[in-house]
Design a protein around this nucleic acid. Structure first.
Lengths: 197, 197
DNA sequence: TGCTAATTTTAATCCGGATTAAAATTTTCG
DNA sequence: CGAAAATTTTAATCCGGATTAAAATTAGCA
């Protein structure tokens, strides 16, 4: 089977997923330039060249990591929205879910550094998704302002602050479950406390 | 004169400072691997090779950018402390100063990506300074808790959240003065609001 | 003006790590 | 078992960008 992988098998997808997580961990810790494909391969007990069986190259790898990160963020926001409630409750639930995703089994989520190493098309796509996600979160904040559950504020800047706090997590979280608990407890609590009317 | 530069002249230092700012801007926008020395040089109207007259190499360049960022953060925290007040007031003042530094004339402050591209010694030094700065900020929070101006909270995690929000600024701020105003107004206000008792 | 130091450029070289091709090994399944 | 497909490795190649050395230009100053 070629890595073009149209009719992918289960095992193949699993390994590919593991590859993405290992890569995300490396990129977060060492940065794009700092991680060689060899570094990633070693984590999987493979040789650097073997990676090309699963993915087209390093560019593609970081692109897929970002896509995965975007998927997770989007999914969490959708789930929080689905669970319903006022704007405040949705935002809070989203933070719980997203922080948990960062610190939990979902594995490391790639931090958005090194955007420019992407090809122009990939870069555009990722930036667009990122923007969309921000706008969606801001919409939740606005909804909260409208329904009276969130204090009147600059949703763009407040969103920037909240997203920044969350996106920065991989910089200091390195897998300690105790720390994960602290984060899941403290982050939503603190970040939402400033939004109470 | 060699780039070892012991008895540096004024003009030399100025150009070197400009070099660091240009580099910080590039690193923030394009990442470490994404910026070539040529990119940096072009901003200064120079050739890539000319950079070596001011600095030993790319490693050294990113290291100096981080040192400069650390200096600025430390300076802001010291100034805020000097101006006095309760823990809350100091923390708030620090945020005002630091956000303003990020968005203002002080120029771009290097975001802490690509730590691992540093040499082990430089990495250790930078990480140590970064840790120290975090501990210092947490001390301010604790002081606020003790003097009753800040709600009882997990200072480590709260500090992580606040630092993350601030450190993420270069990801979305690209020089628009209007946006800078919004940030300087909104960030300290929002981030501190969650700490009121 | 002419001399010296400072600054910058031109033109290589150098190198690590990405990528590729072919071979070897392992797995799947009749 | 044995053949075909899947997976991985070995052993090159390749390339962009960092680095260097020498030459050229510019600036300061007696």
């Amino acid at each position: 089977m070629t890595s073009a992988n149209s009719g992918a098998t289960r095992a193949f997808d699993d390994k590919r997923e593991r590859l993405l997580r290992a890569a995300a961990r490396c990129f977060n810790e060492k940065g794009y330039s700092g991680t060689s494909l060899k570094d990633v391969a070693i984590q999987l007990g493979l040789t650097d060249a073997a990676i090309y069986y699963y993915i087209a190259g390093k560019q593609e790898l970081v692109y897929q990591c970002y896509m995965r990160a975007a998927d997770i963020g989007q999914r969490m926001l959708e789930q929080a929205t689905t669970e319903g409630g006022k704007g405040f409750a949705i935002a809070r639930r989203y933070l719980e879910l997203h922080v948990a995703a960062h610190c939990g089994d979902e594995g490391p989520i790639a931090i958005m550094s090194e955007i420019p190493s992407l090809t122009p098309e990939h870069r555009e796509e990722i930036l667009k998704r990122s923007r969309t996600h921000s706008r969606n979160f801001e919409a939740v904040l606005r909804r909260g302002i409208d329904d009276g559950s969130i204090i009147d504020c600059d949703v763009r800047m407040t969103g920037n602050a909240i997203m920044g706090a969350v996106n920065w997590i991989p910089k200091w979280f390195h897998g300690d479950p105790t720390v994960a608990e602290d984060a899941v407890r403290t982050f939503p609590e603190y970040l939402m406390r400033g939004l109470r009317p």
